[in-house]
Amino acid sequence: MKTRECFELLAPYAPEAVVVCALGMAANEWWAVTRSDETFYMHGAMGFASSFALGIALTMPKTPVWVLNGDGSMCMNLGSLLTEASRQPDNLKHLVVANHCYQTVGGLPMAGRRETDYAAIARGAGIREAITVRSLDEMRQALPRILAPGYLLTVLEVECESIPIIPPPQPFEGAEMKYRFGRHMERRFGVSVFGPQGF
């Protein structure tokens, strides 16, 4: 299963959710599929996209929040699974794209083994609902569960693909990322992210 194929199955349902992408392959492939500028593409803080998404989910509890994480990112901050386990907000879906390599820097393998079971790690951290999807058929079967209310961590076992090393493809970054996403949140939910002077 390729990451992009997996995201193509998810993307039609994304308008219902607030989406946060970890830096690297998850962000790049989500951009390739959706061209969405209503997503927050984290360009730094590797390992902390799920924490960022948790902050959104806890303070906007009626809105579905998806975090598209990478296994390289998740493994930089495995302790966050304990934090997530302690809250498990009903509106948060944590999807971990697991290719067991650092794809955007040339596909070098991660520590661990291909058999490393991230869902088991999550369950061990106290997360009640953690599943693994290994094919597009399994992904189609899992979609109703992924889209249903209730916290869920889903590990998407995908191929480590041979691609050239590429920089983040979004044609905006830094402060523009903040303002695009923040203005979207203001328009969509009527919240006030920025004050009257724009900061």
């Binding site: 902050g55 959104i56 303070t59 302790g79 966050s80 919240v191």
Partner: peptide, 25 residues
Amino acid sequence: THVRVARESEAVAIASGAFFTGTRS
């Protein structure tokens, strides 16, 4: 809403996410 974290940078990222819902953290 109080969140106990396992590493301090988690707290930074949680607060940063909350910023985008208009929540002071």
